[in-house]
Design a protein around this nucleic acid. Structure first.
Lengths: 237, 237
DNA sequence: CTTGATCGTATTGTTAACAATCATGTCAAC
DNA sequence: GTTGACATGATTGTTAACAATACGATCAAG
């Protein structure tokens, strides 16, 4: 049985794609920044894209909105979320609360295979970055943080991290300088060193530093909501 | 405009209750342990209870399942979740990662009114406890942790905490000794002292200690899944 | 040239009927 | 007396048609 979501023993034997898969796919597309903030997600288009009925798309969009990755506007449809500066700060604050602990737990619980996987992952990150495969580089960069949560073996925090990483991609898309890379993979490398040294505290500290670096590379200046709303609204896409 | 959920400007002017409200109500009932783990939530019953159509109930149940407060079993309906010992440990691990930070931030950001509200809240807790109003005492005890997240002014962590507090009530219902109280309100009192002293670090430390106390009061011993499933299954209600 | 209104179209939201699945109670067989 | 099969009833899941709302274009007025 392939990783049943939630515990729903759906009758999705091989016929159709499940809501969780659709959610996951859209998460991925958002992380890779192929779905920019504000993008309209029309039901009919998604039905065609995933080859499923409208009901399933509707449920998927509801799930996505409950994780604040899409915004539902009554009678107007679903749009990829456009986090405000305030929301951006909240996301980073939550990540700063969670991820140092996750890093520490991951170090404590990592097996030999995990270290191998992390090393292989960093290699892929490097390559994607070097070859200018931007989408993949971004995805792998986020994936690194997800992997730590997986190694920490905590489903609750893993789910939280998937949401936070996805929203972070949206935030970088809005507030990040277009030229600057999202994660300096050097940081990830340093964290791997802490893993090899089995130094949980060092991993936690490096993670804190890493997140602070990312946040400070953004322009979350207190733009007064009045004018900014118009600007970011019309700058959509 | 009364606190629009998500940002949906629903056409729920005064006619009908929104999904978010239903979710909130069920959260509350679970926190108060009036909906024990495993309770069946039939659609027709909920339709009648809330006076809404089936569609709305269905969406509410989907949202509740996405927060792991109810389990959806295909073709069999929705049931209040029964967290496993493993899930219970994960919930506490997540709380231990989040709440000390929340406590520290709350201390930093609390205004004079917040201190008054907290003091008033503690008084209500004491009274409910003293008067043996068990449901209310439990609800207030959980509410205290929610209030800290509100004072910390972080919507992301607030949402996470609502989920975690609710799931904690389920966990205590399953693994807690029936006689013991959920939160010793003395702990809450001590945390309030830290607020008055504006000592964020103390609040964080007290919170850590508080959570550890609660977890250690539970019986999360590694019961082999085989037998426990039957026991907890028949112990339903 | 811009502003405002009206209509047609397209998309979303809801309802109700239908199909499928599972639980319950009865009955026969061992 | 217990176990298995079977039919009935109830509950969930899906589909499709319908209603409602918002968008876009066209056009007239200032």
């Amino acid at each position: 049985m392939p990783a049943a979501p939630h515990e729903i023993s759906q009758n999705v034997s091989a016929d159709e794609i499940a809501e969780e898969d659709i959610v996951e796919r859209i998460f991925e597309a958002v992380v890779e920044q192929r779905l920019p903030p504000g993008t309209k997600l029309s039901e009919s288009a998604l039905c065609e894209a995933f080859g499923v009925g409208r009901m399933r798309i509707r449920r998927s969009l509801l799930l996505l909105s409950s994780r604040e990755v899409v915004e539902l506007h009554a009678n107007r449809g679903a749009y990829v979320a456009s986090p405000s500066a305030k929301q951006a700060r909240e996301v980073f604050e939550a990540r700063l609360a969670l991820e140092p602990t996750i890093a520490r737990l991951a170090v404590e619980r990592a097996g030999a295979a995990d270290l191998v996987n992390l090393a292989a992952h960093l290699k892929m990150e490097h390559e994607a970055h070097h070859d200018d495969r931007r989408h993949e580089a971004i995805r792998l960069s986020g994936q690194f943080h997800i992997m730590l949560a997986q190694i920490a073996s905590n489903a609750v925090m893993l789910r939280m991290m998937k949401e936070l990483v996805t929203r972070t991609s949206l935030i970088i898309g809005i507030f990040g300088a277009p030229s600057v890379a999202n994660c300096r993979d050097d940081d990830h490398e340093r964290i791997l060193f802490a893993f090899k040294a089995r130094d949980g505290q060092a991993a936690a500290d490096l993670m804190t530093e890493h997140l602070r670096e990312i946040e400070s590379s953004l322009d979350l200046g207190n733009k007064n909501s009045g004018a900014v709303d118009l600007v970011s609204l019309f700058a959509r896409k």
